[in-house]
Design a protein around this nucleic acid. Sequence first.
DNA 1: CGCCCGTATCAAAACGTTTTGGGAGCCGGA
DNA 2: TCCGGCTCCCAAAACGTTTTGATACGGGCG
Lengths: 338, 338
Amino acid sequence: MNLKELAANLGLSQTTVSRALNGYPEVNEATRTRVAEAASRLGYRPNASARRLATGRVGAVGIVYSASDGYGPHTSEFLGGLGSRLGADEIDILISTVDDPAEELATYRRAIVSKKVDAIVLHAPRPDDTRVALLQDLGFPFVLHGRTNTTRSLAWLDIDNEAATARATEHLIQTGHRDIALLNGPRGLTFTLHREAGFRQALGKHGLALNPALMANGMFSDETGFRLAQAMLERRPRPTAFLAGSMMTALGVFRAIRSAGLTLGKDVSMIAHDDVFPYLNADTMVPSMSTTRSSIRAAGGRVAELLSQVLAGKPADDIHELWPVEMVLRESTGPGPH
Amino acid sequence: MNLKELAANLGLSQTTVSRALNGYPEVNEATRTRVAEAASRLGYRPNASARRLATGRVGAVGIVYSASDGYGPHTSEFLGGLGSRLGADEIDILISTVDDPAEELATYRRAIVSKKVDAIVLHAPRPDDTRVALLQDLGFPFVLHGRTNTTRSLAWLDIDNEAATARATEHLIQTGHRDIALLNGPRGLTFTLHREAGFRQALGKHGLALNPALMANGMFSDETGFRLAQAMLERRPRPTAFLAGSMMTALGVFRAIRSAGLTLGKDVSMIAHDDVFPYLNADTMVPSMSTTRSSIRAAGGRVAELLSQVLAGKPADDIHELWPVEMVLRESTGPGPH
DNA sequence: CGCCCGTATCAAAACGTTTTGGGAGCCGGA
DNA sequence: TCCGGCTCCCAAAACGTTTTGATACGGGCG
């Protein structure tokens, strides 16, 4: 059932039928209802490809993941927030997966120049991100989840990793901790650097030296958390507090603490960053976990709204959102030795 | 840069250029390389919408998630496997999110009749799934991840939940456990029923009665696992072994066991189902976790291949894959009291 | 009565591909 | 010489929309 058939069926022209369905004013209200009725009765739905070809708009946003390290537990949460918000406007998400990192830029370029999407969501940026540069060069609309170091105009949403980490670190210092370990994310990513900066800042503010042995990088998994924390706990003096980069990391750290015969919240404290996974609740853990918390699902939803703004022509310079991160103190943090 | 411009630039017709680029035989090899060179030099890429309109093929598969309960930790893993395999053939994944469950069928119908995708991936089915019925009625190609009770032909891939659960249960029985608890998935889903069937089967085989108080349903989260296990551990006689539906559930059960002053692997045993998350490793836990294991990422990859087969016209009746599930015994299982 | 204007409709162009149906030009065989 | 077949290329149709430019029809107004 296509437009021509539907029009013939109604004894109207394609033009009129198309306008009636798309809410143009210059069509008689009686005709409009008659068309609408026939369309739903005959199950007519415009062919998406034809409409896209004619309008130039696609009704989809793109997001690229790398097969190796792209997909994680936060992925589904972010997509859930993004998709839920976009779905309300009948906009789809187009996911491309790239195996070879060298193919990444080409994948973006392809999606753009073959007009598969109206806009792109960029994530996990580096300070000097080549993807950002590419999209800016092409003048293609996009929203960045995270930040770069660029001064050129771009739309972004990020959480304040630096302040969050600084605040958590400072809390630990103020409650008597001196040997604080930071289990950070993968090296080179902006948010990793921001967290390190916040860590340094808080230490510096209180005149504490940074111990490089107590700073480590890795992906956010329980195993990494376990391995890194275990190694650190074997050092003397051993760390009395951990900042865990994610809840997964925190699980591993917790295990390492127990394995060392120590008690979390008493011998050793921990503050973890919590992306608010529905299946892993910091509040109901035993002991309950102190966290810096920011819902990544909410971020996804908001990014969807920012995409709409970008597509509506709002200048990218006006679209900067830095979300504060709340700190929730629970049982995993206790006084330190000082 | 479109085809017409490119053709004009080369002094050739659109036909020839199109054929040259798409590898048709009736074009001179010299011409073909000349065209290819010009195309890449000028950065020509065919407009996806136009090509789709002309060919009727889209180059994308669809998958629908419900905003409320659709996205979980397994989602990203499955998408990773699916996308990685599809990406190799330059096929994209189109994700739609539906907020209102009543809108779900309409969303599928819309994606199909407006020709947004070539095929669909269906997941988390119920025995009598209305989505399956819809797709079969419409004659639309799809692959089901999971199973229904239907005898009509459809392509599916599933893991053998029944056998896996039966085997795990039986192992526990054989090692002296009698009061075994099953923490199952959400009520009504096929895999939940399969696991329950496997559980019943193993108990029956050994002449054990099923204790309804030791069977519970819920989503796979640590909190659910904790809550359910805690309640069960307060009963007398208390369960001496748990079958946890997922690694998240297992984390909660583990916590409940510790909270009750008991030791996992000694006082209480546990076998968890492991979807093989890269960020949560059963082998490196303390104690290491006995599991029934099946990579959901691998399943995603295989589903992609099955989609290709369906689209290539292979009869759905020939596309049934039931994956065996391996059981890996580790430290979380020990002898029971009998 | 003639003119203009708003309403409601239409035929045809445009979007950028692929595919259909030919059609030159050339070579070899009859 | 003629013809069939092969190689290489082309003009135009087709895909199903939206959008452009026009047009018929009344009615109000001078």
